[in-house]
Structures are given as structure tokens and as C-alpha cells.
């Protein structure tokens, strides 16, 4: 019963961060999950930027934002990035901003059966 605790570190991971208006994040998470994102963390935030340069139309842009953090595999990053871009309609002024950062490593719970499979493949 007294199993030694272990940590599995993941390599080849990237972080997609996407800043959108409040209320839009859920749609983007849905789109990202459809193409393989495993989960998302959403922060609430406030921010400025394009809104101030839109003139009176700036009222249509909410000051309150949602910041999405999605950790993805390097292989998936381009696909998910583009899907999120389209789902968030980021090609419209004031809709948001997104970027990818490379991550050195990540760690979380990995199901043991998948871990077994993977270690066999690597050997």
C-alpha cells in the first residue's frame, strides 16, 4: 500500500494565453477542446488597448476581460491556436489578443495505464 510517490514531468508543452471580453471565454474553450485541448484556466481581469482607439464604438468593448490559459502539446499548438483565434473572432478590432509561450516543463497527474504504455514505447 505504501507506494513511493513520483512525479512525471512533461516536455514539449506550450502555453496559449488568450485575452477576450468577459463572457466569450467559454466559446473559445469549447472550440479548443474540440481540437484536443485538455482543459483551460480562466482568470477575470481588466484591461485597455484597442478600446480606447475605437472612439465611440469603444462602448461595445467590455473593459472586463477573461484571460484563458490553455496548456497544449507542441504538436497541437498551431491548430488549437488558430481554432481559438477563429472562435474568438479575434480578426475584429477590440475582440482580444492571444499569444503562445514555450514552457520548460509541466507536471500533473498522469493516468498509470497511459504511463505504462508510454514508457514501453520509449524503451
Amino acid at each position: 500500500m505504501n507506494k513511493a510517490r513520483q512525479m512525471v514531468t512533461l516536455k514539449d508543452v506550450s502555453l496559449i494565453t488568450c485575452i477576450v471580453q468577459k463572457g466569450v471565454a467559454d466559446d473559445i474553450v469549447k472550440a479548443a477542446s474540440e481540437v484536443g485541448a485538455q482543459g483551460a484556466t480562466i482568470f477575470y481581469a481588466r484591461g485597455t488597448g484597442v478600446r480606447e482607439r475605437l472612439g465611440i464604438l469603444g462602448v461595445a468593448v467590455d473593459v472586463e476581460k477573461e484571460v484563458l490559459n490553455i496548456v497544449v502539446a507542441n504538436e497541437q499548438v498551431d491548430l488549437i491556436f488558430e481554432k481559438m483565434f477563429l472562435a474568438g473572432k479575434l480578426d475584429t478590432p477590440g475582440m482580444g489578443f492571444m499569444y503562445v509561450t514555450p514552457l520548460l516543463k509541466a507536471a500533473t497527474y498522469i493516468p498509470p495505464e497511459i504511463l505504462d504504455k508510454l514508457s514501453k514505447e520509449n524503451c
Binding site: V50, R53, L54, G55, L57, V59, A60, V61, K89, T92, P93, G94, M95
Partner: peptide
């Protein structure tokens, strides 16, 4: 400077709002 908006952008900006 102010961003110049095209009609489609105005529509896409205002529609969800």
C-alpha cells in the same frame, strides 16, 4: 491614432454587444 473600421467590423463589433 484611431483605428479605421470597415462596415463588416462595425457589424461584428456591435452585433454581440
Amino acid at each position: 491614432e484611431r483605428i479605421k473600421l470597415e462596415a463588416i467590423d462595425v457589424y461584428r463589433l456591435l452585433y454581440p454587444y
